[in-house]
Write a protein that binds this DNA or RNA. Structure first.
Lengths: 229, 229
DNA sequence: CGACGATCCGGACCGGAGTCCGTTTAAGGT
DNA sequence: ACCTTAAACGGACTCCGGTCCGGATCGTCG
């Protein structure tokens, strides 16, 4: 299940010495394909395989939360340091475990048959994409969650609930025929502090543009303003 | 800055003995107000204040990442256990720090003057709400981020970038006039694994409904299908 | 084949989150 | 004022993620 093909998943963590990290964090979607593998030394490759297998075994037998770096190392009969060198951190390891299904999915929407792949009109592809992703997530949900620290809590934080409820209430008034409960989540997504931070600080997007995008989103969702577009 | 009013923020963590946690994780929005405070013992209240003050000082002087439970405890001349008993965990402490501005914001959109507060038509309130939230976030971004473990990474994970880029590309074809870069984030929000987990596992929402909501969202955003609504 | 340099290995080590439990103290009843 | 008890306290302890570095291995080149 290892290596090559489409986009791999691990983050670009690592230290200054720029280890030959095994997941080339690629780019340029659409063109796809990219067989880059730094080609590990024999022992390194062997250990990498062992580690993934061990991790998979742990997940299967005792759930994702049993996947502790030490436990994986022990299960694979390997030193703890090796796990970190290979995968960067816990997230990297879990992510690598998801790599296979990830790449299958990417292949499906980048080059598979319509309506998911190219060939269908964009709106239909969008519809198909979401549904496919929803179904895919249903499977390895546990892993996906485990790979993202503090993910369970995110939707339980009272403060956030209040904000979402408010959006939901306003939506109910504006578009009573819609599934406002779920719709509100999409709007919340646009206001996520982490997103704001990413866009304003890391991507230099000016606040004004964010506001404009929000207003546009609201108008689209509620069908307001520019009436029919 | 302590206590009472609108909704407080801390999660419902704590252990089985059900400590009289200071943030009553309330409910019933719209009705607002709720002066519930378990009324801590004198020493407890004193220490709580000390801790918040100490934490605030640490944030101000050395940034949010210096807010370590031990450091806060030391700064407040209090035992480490006390910090945990009072705030549950690090997230709870940071959240409590945000409580003040949080409540001010809640007050503004629950009962303040239009267009944020009641009185304006719902669509306008929605627009105002998002803009207000964007501006508010710009301030205590650092704290908000720190309060949510692993928040920085979320938008850097390569796998997620690929998915978003795909959505963005399809959007560009479907609604070339929109700010598809930003718009794609809203759609991604609806497909967030953590959200899927929350809805399907904790809220028992059937997958079919999620799919329907997605399709509806796509149609609204692209203006497709039901044409003008 | 032997030696050399680059790469990898492993486990000791560190710091911080969260738990536990014996001790102390506030508050209310007598 | 004193006694009782529920609550709060504090710091030692565990567990885990992540770092570091001396030593073992691999692969290559002469």
């Amino acid at each position: 299940m290892l290596y090559a093909g489409f986009m791999s998943t691990a983050p670009p963590p690592s230290s200054t010495p720029q280890e030959p990290f095994d997941h080339p964090e690629l780019l340029q979607l659409g063109t796809a394909l990219e067989g880059e593998e730094p080609c590990l030394r024999a022992d390194a490759a062997r250990n990498r395989a062992r580690l993934l297998e061990a991790a998979g075994r742990l997940v299967a037998e005792r759930g994702a939360e049993a996947v502790t770096m030490e436990a994986v190392a022990a299960e694979a009969c390997v030193g703890k340091g090796t796990v970190f060198r290979r995968f960067g951190d816990r997230t990297g390891l879990l992510t690598a475990l998801l790599d296979h299904s990830e790449k299958k999915f990417q292949a499906a929407f980048l080059g598979g048959p319509p309506p998911l792949g190219p060939g269908a009109p964009p709106v239909e592809r969008l519809r198909a994409f979401g549904c496919a992703m929803l179904r895919r997530s249903a499977d390895d949900l546990e892993l996906q969650l485990a790979a993202e620290p503090g993910a369970h809590r995110r939707f339980v934080v009272p403060a956030r609930r209040v904000l979402r409820h408010h959006i939901e209430m306003l939506l109910r008034q504006a578009v009573p025929e819609a599934d406002c409960d779920l719709l509100s989540h999409a709007l919340m997504g646009q206001l996520d502090p982490a997103l704001i931070h990413h866009l304003t600080r890391q991507c230099q997007v000016p606040l004004a543009r964010l506001e404009a995008a929000w207003v546009d989103l609201v108008d689209r969702v509620t069908g307001a303003d520019t009436a029919c577009r």
